[in-house]
């Protein structure tokens, strides 16, 4: 899935007085992304291709158009990104990394394609699970992104996300991972990339998500974190990622999903946020941008739509706040 931005800009067309979600436009926008290979940006964003596919596919499912991308071609592409060590690269010829491996597992889960994956790759799930498990630091419990060892709570969350979807959590030391997440809690109630690093809503999502999967939300100072998260809402209804920063549609997801996991989503003004997200659409060519007037892209498109789903916008599929995937899919994989 291409990450080429544009061509449209958000909120510059004739937005009708009564705001609405332009479902069909967004579907066509996502479908069009892979037809733009005559643009240099398409190739410069190759190192995100597998993430992009997950973003596009998830948006389509939430929009109620799960079959809008060719299923077999997705599986072919996905398998062409797989390395012998069980990890996935962003695109063929790119090194294996946790982030793409998680995207690959999420795509397989969403397409209900684990069976076909096993047919193509013998013991496929076990191999992928082993790649992920081998990235855990046995001393600290945290995870690296690849064999070179950069550590970040994103990777830890990604590991628990993918392993739980495959039913393979027992391959790693969950208790140690939980300990590490707990050590990243800050004085303001939030979480950063590593112990002591500044609180950031994106990182809060990964830490709260990891603790939720591990069943250890009891470790979170829920009141303080909930208050900090609700402080992210600005007067125009949008949410920011850190104090004194600008609003951005993708935080509709990071902030709201965390609040949903803590059962505190009602602490922010959902109506105002809905309006803000809808203003970030391109009403003519589809897609959402970070804020009104900017270029649209698939990243902000999925997180805007997932945010609207959390806000119970009519007609959208229910999203799972822990996984950023359709709730029907996680129910199927997790059996709950």
């Amino acid at each position: 899935m291409s990450l080429v931005s544009g061509p449209g800009r958000a909120g510059v067309g004739n937005m009708p007085a009564e705001m609405q979600l332009f479902v069909d436009k967004h579907v066509r926008y996502i479908q069009s992304l892979d037809t733009r290979k005559d643009e240099l940006e398409y190739w410069l964003t190759e190192h995100l291709r597998l993430n992009g596919l997950y973003w596009g596919l998830t948006a389509l499912h939430l929009l109620g158009h799960p079959d809008a991308l060719p299923r077999n071609e997705i599986l072919d592409f996905l398998c062409s990104c797989l390395h012998d060590n069980g990890g996935f690269g962003a695109a063929p010829g790119h090194d294996a990394h946790m982030l793409y491996t998680v995207s690959a597992v999420q795509i397989l889960a969403t397409l209900d394609a684990f069976g076909e994956f096993e047919e193509r790759v013998k013991d496929g799930r076990q191999k992928v699970g082993k790649f992920i498990a081998d990235l855990q630091d046995s001393e600290t419990g945290t995870f690296a992104g690849d064999e070179w060892g950069e550590r970040d709570t994103r990777f830890l969350y990604g590991a628990l996300n993918a392993l739980s979807l495959m039913g393979l959590l027992d391959l790693v030391d969950v208790a140690k991972a939980v300990q590490h997440v707990h050590s990243c809690a800050n004085f303001d109630g939030g979480y950063g990339t590593s112990p002591g690093a500044e609180s950031h809503s994106g990182q809060v999502f990964t830490c709260v998500g990891a603790l939720t999967i591990a069943g250890r939300l009891d470790l979170v100072d829920q009141e303080r974190l909930g208050a900090w998260l609700s402080e992210r809402q600005l007067k125009n209804g949008g949410l920011n990622g850190r104090p004194e920063k600008q609003e951005d549609v993708c935080y509709s997801w990071w902030v709201m999903s965390s609040m949903a996991m803590l059962g505190k989503l009602h602490w922010i003004d959902g109506e105002k946020l809905t309006q803000f997200i809808l203003q970030c659409q391109d009403p003519e060519l589809g897609g959402l941008a970070d804020r009104p007037g900017d270029m649209v892209d698939v990243f902000h498109t999925v997180f805007g739509i997932a945010g609207l789903s959390l806000l119970k916008y009519p007609g959208l599929e229910e999203v799972d706040p822990i996984y950023c995937m359709p709730r029907s899919v996680t129910r199927r994989c997790l059996g709950k």
């Binding site: 190192h47 995100l48 993430n51 997950y54 973003w55 962003a90 090194d95 990394h97 982030l99 998680v102 995207s103 690296a144 992104g145 690849d146 064999e147 070179w148 060892g149 950069e150 970040d152 994103r154 969350y157 990604g158 950031h200 994106g202 990182q203 999502f205 990964t206 990622g241 920063k245 951005d248 993708c250 990071w254 990243f299």
Partner: peptide, 14 residues
């Protein structure tokens, strides 16, 4: 060990 790669993110655009 001189390097590692690290990457983009599913999660943290900013």
């Amino acid at each position: 060990q001189l390097i590692r790669s690290f990457i983009a993110n599913i999660f943290l655009s900013p």
